[in-house]
């Protein structure tokens, strides 16, 4: 059963230095507030996984929390580069990071295997690509039935999955609608699951296209209104595209970024 906790308590308890943590949410429902709490608590040597690192991992990397990054598309969509990510990869600032790079389908299927309790799953990707040569958790097999070549990707089971959703009830059941990305896969693959929500309500009124994660699959629920800003929460607030467009100005220069981090995250 999920426990209702304050965000700082939840991060203190469920994210330890050296852990593997997945903060997911595909454009929609990115758990920024939880990421900022990880930065404030100065967690170190994390292995972080996310299909699209987005601004949230650019910030975690720039803040020095990350030792290794698993990802499949590392840009600021429609805008350009993630400069803290690039600075860490190209210049080792503030610390070198190790990359484990996938395609979207590859990282997705690592979560699928993890959620399914399987050591790996198979897909028809990576064949013939350079990614297939460098990705450490990809192997090639022949189908035992037809002989056709397939790629095997190893299961990923994060220590803690961190997600944002529209709402939860008092029992800790979590309700989500709109673009869900790999929400369910991360919940089921992770050993511990922290979900921040816009609101806690007495009764979850069902909505078209929604799903509910039963409380028994969730470790902690934290009520954090606005916790996905500057990404968006369908039927609560829109994506702050102006902030995404402004991010290069904040992040391109190390000093400007560090000043922003001190004022807007550490000092918040």
């Amino acid at each position: 059963m999920a426990e209702h906790l304050g965000l700082s308590d939840a991060i203190f308890r469920y994210v330890q230095d050296g852990d593997t943590v997945a903060l997911e949410g595909f454009t929609h429902l990115i758990p920024f507030a939880a990421g900022h709490e990880i930065i404030r608590q100065q967690k170190r040597n994390l292995t972080v996984s996310r299909m699209t690192p987005d601004l949230i991992y650019d910030q975690l990397i720039g803040a020095g929390c990350v030792r290794k990054l698993l990802f499949s598309w590392g840009g600021n969509p429609g805008v350009g580069s993630l400069y803290r990510f690039r600075d860490a990869v190209e210049n080792g600032w503030p610390a070198p990071i190790e990359l484990e790079e996938h395609s979207h389908a590859g990282l997705t299927n690592r979560y699928v295997a993890g959620a399914s309790g399987m050591p790996f799953t198979v897909m028809k990707g990576y064949l013939g690509t350079s990614l297939g040569e460098i990705a450490p958790h990809v192997r090639f097999l022949d189908c035992p039935f037809t002989g056709e070549p397939v790629a095997a990707v190893r299961a990923l089971n994060p220590d803690t999955g961190i997600l944002h959703a529209q709402r939860a009830d008092r029992a800790g059941n979590v309700q989500v609608w709109g673009i869900s990305g790999v929400f369910r896969e991360v919940v089921m693959a992770s050993r511990q699951v922290v979900v921040t929500v816009e609101e806690v309500v007495d009764v979850l009124e069902r909505r078209p296209g929604d799903f509910v994660i039963p409380s028994m699959a969730v470790t902690a629920v934290c009520e954090v209104p606005g916790g996905a800003w500057p990404s968006y929460v369908q039927d609560h607030y829109e994506r702050d595209n102006d902030w995404y467009r402004k991010w290069p100005e904040v992040s391109r220069d190390r000093d400007v970024f560090s000043a922003w981090l001190d004022e807007s995250v550490m000092g918040a």
Binding site: T52, F71, S72, W73, G74, G75, S81, F85, R86, V89, E90, E101, H102, S103, H104, A105, G106, K124, G125, Y126, L127, T129, L131
Partner: peptide, 16 residues
């Protein structure tokens, strides 16, 4: 790398 680009995303599967 001389330049680190965003990476694969969905492109390999689209191409395949």
């Amino acid at each position: 790398p001389k330049v680190r680009l965003p990476g694969a995303g969905g492109a390999p599967e689209i191409a395949a």
